[in-house]
């Protein structure tokens, strides 16, 4: 299964991803110039958060056990059987917002004007996600979740090893201190 991941060191917080997502996925016109004149204003499924020093583009992580799907009161949120992606079927969504309350990452957003909830489905029915294509710094990347998990597992092990090393050093330092007293 695939999800969109972010290179933290490349994200500048420019919000290009938001603009293109809102235009391509939220507007009727599909061009930026016309999209900004639409009412209601098209909304993005990716949102840039964080401080200006450390911005980050956030979107749905396509959880394996998705609480949003379990909480949906109408069956609008369903997992695509082929790709595993969690998709909101807008025709079935009544805008009760229950899914927004059950997403622990806070990446499902109410769109009250259209009475639907919004989440990233990584542009399932397009060739590639528009945010990934549009990002000027290549900060967004479509990754294999399994590979990503392997990556984080390795990171965790490295961090743990680093901590152990630090503890070892701290212990040694303490011993040195005690011995020099």
């Amino acid at each position: 299964m695939k999800a969109i991941a972010v290179h933290l060191d490349r994200c500048t917080g420019c919000k290009t991803c938001e603009l293109y997502c809102a235009t391509e996925r939220g507007s009727n016109a599909k061009t930026l110039l016309q999209a900004v004149q639409e009412t209601p204003l098209p909304q993005a499924r990716v949102r840039v958060e964080g401080s200006s020093e450390v911005p980050i583009a956030l979107q749905c992580r396509q959880c394996a056990q998705a609480p949003c799907v379990d909480s949906c009161l109408t069956g609008a949120l369903r997992r695509d059987p082929e790709s595993g992606t969690v998709v909101i079927h807008e025709n079935d969504c009544i805008g009760c917002w229950t899914c927004t309350l059950f997403c622990p990452y806070g990446v499902i957003y109410p769109w009250p004007e259209r009475k639907i909830a919004l989440k990233c489905d990584r542009c399932l029915y397009m060739e590639s996600p528009v945010c990934v294509d549009a990002c000027p710094t290549n900060a967004l990347e479509l990754v294999d979740i399994e590979k990503y998990e392997e990556f984080t597992r390795r990171k965790r092990l490295e961090t743990a090893a680093g901590l152990q090393e630090n503890e070892h050093l701290a212990g040694k330092l303490l011993l040195d201190l005690v011995q020099t007293r």
């Binding site: 999800a3 969109i4 991941a5 972010v6 290179h7 933290l8 060191d9 490349r10 964080g50 450390v54 980050i56 583009a57 956030l58 979107q59 992580r61 990452y105 806070g106 990446v107 990347e141 990754v143 979740i145 990503y148 990556f151 984080t152 990171k155």
Partner: peptide, 10 residues
Amino acid sequence: YNRRASVLQP
């Protein structure tokens, strides 16, 4: 960050 996004280079 890690908890909310899939971060590639923390």
